[in-house]
């Protein structure tokens, strides 16, 4: 039996997924990226192989994706945009729009029925509307990033963060703190502010249900609430949201291998 590997090299973590001929996930692993990307990439693959008891020889094709995709050994490289779309459609076949809020950038992707990318948009250089914005704000609020989402759910008097600039946003947060606003209410406002930015990006590609959220920020309940409230629709979020890119890469590897039947170059 052949297996196919997808390795997603993110700035913080490397995710590896192995699928079989039948597209089942047979193994997965997440390791920190660290400074030595090439070694970490191999380590992620090794960890996945071991966890699933997969014979390395059975890996027919490996595809790397993510920002560091060119820095690791692989048979082919595909961008995270195409991989996230593919992975999202696999987990939620009704997916027509994918939203990935990453640490450095945010992507809105429109997909066709087969998981192919029809259109995409990414944020510009500015950090507003990315995970980075949340990190900066969590620091200003002196709370852990992980706590920001659950905290915001307790809000009773949401505050407004209107600035689109990270620096201005931070000064707004600081002045809310100075005015004695509660952290949960500011947290709620922050998620609403990012939701606004993200929805602007989504509208550029056109929002069509179902909307699947991928990437690490998908685990933030506050962010999900804010987007759902604003759009009036329910998001698909998988427990596997962090590995959607790697899953997509593995599925594309399988597809390429079976379609062409060729040995990889």
């Amino acid at each position: 039996m052949s297996h196919f590997a997808g390795v997603d090299i993110g700035s913080l973590a490397i995710k590896c997924v192995i699928v079989n001929d039948a597209m089942d996930i047979v193994a997965k692993a997440v390791v920190p990226t660290g400074a030595r990307v090439a070694q970490a990439g191999e380590a992620a693959l090794r960890a996945a192989l071991e966890s699933g008891g997969v014979d390395p020889v059975s890996i027919a094709l490996t595809i790397a994706t993510g920002y560091g995709r060119k820095r690791v050994a692989a048979d082919a490289r595909v961008t995270e945009i195409t991989c996230h779309a593919r992975g999202a459609v696999h987990l939620f076949p009704g997916t027509r729009t994918v939203l990935d809020i990453g640490g450095q950038d945010t992507k809105a992707i429109r997909v066709g029925a087969k998981g192919e990318v029809a259109n995409f948009a990414m944020n510009d250089k500015c950090a507003a509307g990315t995970g980075r914005f949340l990190e900066v704000m969590a620091r200003a609020l002196e709370v852990d990033l992980e706590d920001l989402g659950p905290l915001s759910r307790e809000s009773t008097k949401p505050q407004t963060i209107s600035s689109f600039c990270t620096v201005f946003g931070e000064s707004e947060v600081v002045s809310h703190i100075a005015d004695g606003a509660e952290i949960k209410d500011i947290a709620r406002g922050l998620h609403a502010a990012i939701a606004q930015r993200v929805i602007g990006l989504l509208k550029r590609v056109g929002i069509e249900a179902e909307l699947t959220m991928s990437g690490g920020v998908a685990r933030n309940v506050g962010m999900r609430d804010a987007i759902e409230r604003e759009l009036g629709l329910t998001l698909n979020v998988s427990d596997e949201s962090q590995i959607i890119g790697a899953l997509g890469a593995a599925l594309i590897a399988r597809q390429r291998y079976l379609n062409t039947g060729e040995e990889p170059r």
């Binding site: 600035s163 600039c165 620096v167 201005f168 707004e172």
Partner: peptide
């Protein structure tokens, strides 16, 4: 566009 103005600043 008041979003481009920082009230605190």
């Amino acid at each position: 566009d008041s979003r481009a103005v920082s009230d605190a600043a």
